[in-house]
Structures are given as structure tokens and as C-alpha cells.
């Protein structure tokens, strides 16, 4: 396994799509179509959730992302911006079957939990890290 590629994104909603496209393009030849789709959904939802809801002490603090690839597996680590309150989405993610079909919001966290092959969250080197793993089906 080589070291991770490191990306930084400003903490702005307008920058989410460009970062998602850049990272999805970066793993384009690593993942099968279905896995790539799940990666793109999860990354989009996770970054949007961070930008919209992370309460940071510094609004200009960037979001750092580490992209690691190994054989048929891609790991994307999203580090909360400095000063953000810890938020373990696994404790809040709804079962998508339980979401009101006519709800206009509230699906993002459930999508992440359902579409990633594994979801981890916790402190790493003084920062809070959401780690999402995607592996091609055998």
C-alpha cells in the first residue's frame, strides 16, 4: 500500500461537487462501476453534511481528505475541520426503509451507512476522522 493522496477543500458548499468529481475521477480505474457509484454518493453526502452541519470554531478551516487505494479497495478519510464538534454519523443514520417517502431531507447519513462497505469514526492524531471503505465485489 502506498501512502495516501492528500486533498484539501474549503469549507464551502460550492466546492463540494468539484471535490467529489476530482476524487471520483482519481479512483475511476480502481473501482468497478457499482463501487464507484457508491463511493461518489457517500463522498458527496459526507462532504455536504460536514459543510452544512459541522460547527467549527474557524469557518475558514479546510477539510482534509486522504485517499488510499490498494488492489480492489479504496479508503477515503475525511478529517473534520479544526474546531468541529465530534459527530459520529453512525449513531444518527436512519434506516432508509424508515424514512418518510415524502420527506425532503434526512436521507444523507443513511445513504452513507448503506452504501459504504465500512464506516469508522474517531480521533486520529488530534483530529476527528470519518473513514469510508469501498471494495469491489468478488
Amino acid at each position: 500500500m502506498t501512502g495516501p493522496q492528500i486533498f484539501r477543500m474549503t469549507n464551502r458548499l460550492d466546492d463540494v461537487d468539484a471535490m467529489v468529481v476530482e476524487l471520483t475521477t482519481a479512483i475511476d480505474d480502481k473501482l468497478a462501476m457499482d463501487t464507484r457509484f457508491r463511493f461518489e454518493i457517500c463522498l458527496s453526502e459526507a462532504l455536504t453534511n460536514l459543510v452544512k452541519h459541522a460547527k467549527t470554531s474557524d469557518a475558514d478551516a479546510p477539510i482534509e481528505l486522504h485517499l488510499t487505494t490498494e488492489n480492489d479497495t479504496v479508503i477515503i478519510d475525511l478529517f473534520d475541520p479544526v474546531g468541529a464538534q465530534p459527530f459520529d454519523l453512525r449513531t444518527k443514520a436512519p434506516d432508509l426503509d424508515q424514512v418518510d417517502l415524502l420527506a425532503e431531507s434526512g436521507r444523507g447519513l443513511g445513504l452513507i451507512v448503506q452504501c459504504a462497505d465500512s464506516v469508522d469514526y474517531g480521533p486520529v492524531n488530534g483530529k476527528n476522522r470519518l473513514s469510508l471503505t469501498f471494495t469491489n465485489a468478488a
Partner: peptide
């Protein structure tokens, strides 16, 4: 080419 949960939410809002 791509729709996220906010896009779905917008469609639901239009339907309603």
C-alpha cells in the same frame, strides 16, 4: 449524471 439526497429532496418538494 448525478443526483444526491438534496436533489431527491427538491424533487419531493416539487411533487408536494
Amino acid at each position: 449524471t448525478f443526483v444526491d439526497s438534496s436533489g431527491l429532496g427538491a424533487l419531493v418538494g416539487i411533487l408536494k
